[in-house]
């Protein structure tokens, strides 16, 4: 079991980041990460060695998070394509341009916060594919497996997520 502990340690932040992106609550994300690894242990005997453990783990996480969100919030998820509201982006804070030029470090921190705020504005589905692609480096086939959709859907979601991000990040692009 200690070998499994190594895997837990290696992937816990990535699983947590994925869960947080989907449920938007730190305590829930921690609990769901915990549940992911418990489920992973219970199911690991059925895991095929030639499959990607990472993708498989993601699948467990996304399934748990989807169930959690459904239970917590019965409202249907609205896709960005269907409900792009021009006013929805209004409260993203951007660093004022007329202020003295901050140091690189401060500037970088501000940019990071700005990006995080922009990602917060994406729908859970779009944020998920952005995270898997941009931050975890998964290819479309792996994302499709992790999310449980087709590669065409991955391509479409990434496209619309990036269109939205273009708008949200306009001031820093």
């Amino acid at each position: 079991m200690e070998a499994y502990g190594e895997l837990v340690n290696r992937y816990r932040h990535r699983v947590y980041a994925l869960a947080l992106g989907m449920v938007r609550n730190e305590q829930d994300a921690t609990d769901l990460s915990q549940e992911t690894f418990v489920k992973g242990w219970q199911a690991i005997r059925g895991f095929k060695k030639n499959a990607s453990f990472y993708t498989w783990l993601y699948r467990i996480t996304t399934n748990l998070c989807i169930d959690h969100v459904r239970r917590r919030d019965r409202r249907p998820t609205v896709e960005f394509e269907e409900a792009m509201d021009p006013d929805a982006d209004a409260d993203v804070e951007i660093p004022p341009s007329n202020q003295p030029l901050p140091t690189d470090e401060v500037r970088r921190r501000e940019l990071r916060e700005f990006i995080e705020a922009a990602l917060e504005k994406l729908s859970p589905e779009h944020r998920l594919v952005v995270q898997l692609r941009e931050f975890d480096g998964l290819d479309y086939a792996a994302i499709a497996k992790a999310v449980g959709c087709s590669m065409g859907t991955v391509m479409s979601r990434l496209h619309y997520a990036r269109k939205h991000l273009q708008k949200l990040l306009q001031k820093v692009l």
């Binding site: 816990r12 947590y16 921690t30 990006i115 952005v130 692009l173």
Partner: peptide, 23 residues
């Protein structure tokens, strides 16, 4: 440009539990 911007400043998201406590 969007891809480069995200790659330059990826959000740092880490759970607050320590490794030992979480395990």
């Amino acid at each position: 440009r969007v891809r480069q911007t995200l790659a330059a400043c990826p959000p740092i998201i880490e759970m607050s539990d320590s490794a030992d406590f979480f395990w």
